[in-house]
Design a protein around this nucleic acid. Structure first.
Lengths: 344, 344
DNA sequence: GACACGTGAGAAAACGCTTTCTCATTCTTT
DNA sequence: AAAGAATGAGAAAGCGTTTTCTCACGTGTC
């Protein structure tokens, strides 16, 4: 009879009893070890099937020293970028039989390293998206998190590949596109101050400024979401710029929404660009000119790098750099005759 | 000296040696058991801190019979609805110290029950979003998945709460709104054929039809994403309807995009409605009239229900029903003089 | 027909932790 | 001052697997 073990769940012991063999033999059969007599193996399999036995993964994990699970730490699960990374990661990992444990830090970066540590201990490896964590802290915790893959960051700790999007090049491409359209007054609606990707954008803009001294580039404070863009309308108009580089698509959409409310025409009066090319970018009105980042692929690659690390293929952990692709849509157009600043 | 255990990681044994006590005592201290002499406890804590000891969660899980992790099965991580559920679930669970393991079934419903079983075995409970799974299959696997919470479904298996959005009422509200605006010819752009939530919508429309025999309601085949909506333009126009109920916001956005391309004015020529009120719905042009579903809250409630089950508070597992709230925006307007069908 | 050898399965250890059981010590109590 | 109660820590038994170790049995060889 299906004798339940104490826990109430069917365990390897129950199968062993039913098949009249030892635990060890059941384990061997379940793991495809061929040093078992075919007759006995069949008996074991029959018993397992009849009892609907399913090995307990926790026991397995303890014995094998691996969990077949990886973790991902994201600062905000509501952000389409991290959703896309998660999606790519999850899909790729699933193909190799791995699952994904998520840890949302909700932007509280003080908790990030603790969270990362906890997640890591439950998993075989970790993907870390922590754009606001200081370099020092990152470098300090990185070794204890190995195998570890970084998104949009790098660190000097050894064997920690970083998958980074070349945001610097991306903003230069966008700025160049606006200049080609005749814009000479641009404004950058910046992202969160400490964000690593924001700093890359700023560096890119510096390079751009150096190459185009004739173009005026105003820096405006911002953030990373809809509301940020929406609230920035006044600042944008006051800047007198005719070409606006928003930190990302979300901000751009918020900004466009605000500009529409003011009765302005895009791109007639003002051109707006985003960054990321989230799925909705092509469906805004007007469709948003942006820099497309192969973000789902990034998640996929994160898994491949992590897998190499888990398998101890330590030969190469190069990290990689992704080039955004300029996606020209309807939100950018020729500059009108230069507008003057709203006041002064 | 920090004697490494065989595995290379610092274990309870290392701390025990360093503090000159037994494993048991270290465990007691780490778990806040107060039957330990304060001096010894301090010594243990010091040793643990110096060694940076962190208990291995797998060992802990095995001993305690719980993982402090819950699983969620979703059919498609790219769908904003499931992203929102995941977000609400993750946040609520995190507040109680639980983590979330995700299992994306990628719409292959044949794998869903296996996936669910695997996820469940690694976790203390499961949230299942499986809109296309047959009732029979669901009922069969439900007991083995307990503690289990269902999203947008119910089952007759005992103690399986289902959190369901009243899509039927929602479409009736939307249809009613369109009729008030003077529309007499409506079309429903349906969702995936076997989807549970689609069926709820269809039922709601039946009720509506019965109450409004004067209104013509055309049923059109569809799906659940952008492209579905975009591709449905011809069918929609051929139907001659002036008020379109799209399966959800995504479909509505795709449809609006397609209608714009045809040069039609929304809502001047045709009114379009969505469902769900995803974050982007208010930023489309025109802003989308839709039925708002408190979907993040649904994820949150899923955790609360699951938590009650995990804690064996089996007193009540009621499930709950959520009423969508009609959100009238700019994509719906008064019906023009009845249009005739494009052909015939 | 004995001896080495290979094969296959059980016993037991290991994984890292929690917790019960047990016992030595100290504190009460009369 | 002696007996009983209370306290605190170590030994050991789990939790459910995998895997090494060990040994019995059957086969092949000379």
């Amino acid at each position: 009879m299906a004798r339940k073990s104490a826990s109430g769940r069917i365990g390897i012991a129950d199968v062993a009893v039913k098949a009249g063999v030892s635990h060890a033999t059941v384990s061997r059969v379940m793991n495809g070890n061929f040093t078992v007599d075919p007759d006995i193996a069949a008996r074991v399999r029959a018993a397992a099937a009849e009892l609907k036995y399913q090995p307990n993964p926790v026991g397995r994990s303890l014995a094998l020293g691996k969990t077949d699970t990886i973790g991902i730490v994201v600062p905000d699960l509501a952000n389409p970028t991290f959703q896309a990374i998660l999606r790519g990661l999850s899909r790729a990992a699933a193909q190799d039989g791995y699952r994904v444990l998520i840890a949302d830090s909700f932007e509280v970066s003080s908790e990030e390293s603790i969270l990362a540590g906890e997640a890591r201990r439950r998993c075989d490896g970790l993907v870390l998206c922590a754009p606001r964590m200081s370099d020092a802290e990152l470098e300090e915790i990185a070794p204890s998190l190995h195998p570890l893959v970084l998104i949009n960051r790098t660190t000097s700790a050894p064997n920690v590949p970083g998958l980074v999007v070349d945001y610097g090049q991306g903003v230069q491409d966008i700025a160049g596109h606006l200049v080609e359209l005749g814009h000479t007054r641009l404004a950058f609606l910046a992202g969160p101050p400490r964000s690593a990707s924001n700093e890359m954008r700023l560096k890119g803009l510096e390079t751009f400024r150096a190459a185009h001294p004739e173009v005026e580039v105003t820096m405006l404070e911002g953030g990373s979401d809809f509301d940020t863009g929406h609230e920035a309308v006044d600042a944008v108009l006051q800047s007198g710029a005719t070409g606006i580089l928003a930190f990302n698509d979300l901000v751009a959409m918020g900004l466009m929404s605000g500009l529409h409310e003011r009765g302005l025409d895009i791109p007639g009066d003002i051109s707006v660009t985003g960054f990321d090319d989230i799925p909705f970018a092509r469906y805004t009105t007007p469709a948003l000119t942006t820099a497309a980042v192969p973000i789902t692929e990034l998640g996929e690659q994160a898994w491949h790098q992590l897998r190499a690390l888990i398998r101890k293929e330590e030969n190469e952990t190069p990290g990689s750099r992704y080039q955004p692709r300029l996606e020209v849509r309807a939100s950018t157009g020729p500059a009108k005759a230069p507008r003057s600043t709203v006041h002064g």
